[in-house]
Amino acid sequence: MCGATKGGLDLKGVDVDKEAVIQGQVLRGDEPVGGAYVRLLDSTGEFTAEVPTSATGHFRFFAAPGSWTLRTLAPKADPVDRQVVAQYGAVAEVAVTV
């Protein structure tokens, strides 16, 4: 995606104080994986949201404070689960390797 900055998505226009942001990038080796699917599961394992990754492998969720699981599905790869904690006023950055 044009304009994406290394180290994370641009947060311009997002009031981080009011959002519990979870974002990151899906990688295969050093290569970003676009068109992967990242699912946000709540603390009981229930699906909450899902986004496809951008061409640069990036994704973002506006979550609520608490513990979440990111489940990543990508072509020719097994699903990968990562645990993450979100809180207001902070951006949880997660790198997922498939």
């Binding site: 997002v14 009011k18 959002e19 946000l40 909450t48 949201a49 899902e50 986004v51 973002r60 969720f61 506006f62 979550a63 609520a64």
Partner: peptide, 11 residues
Amino acid sequence: GRLLAPAHLPQ
């Protein structure tokens, strides 16, 4: 009632 919209959209 803890969220008003899906978590990938602003609230």
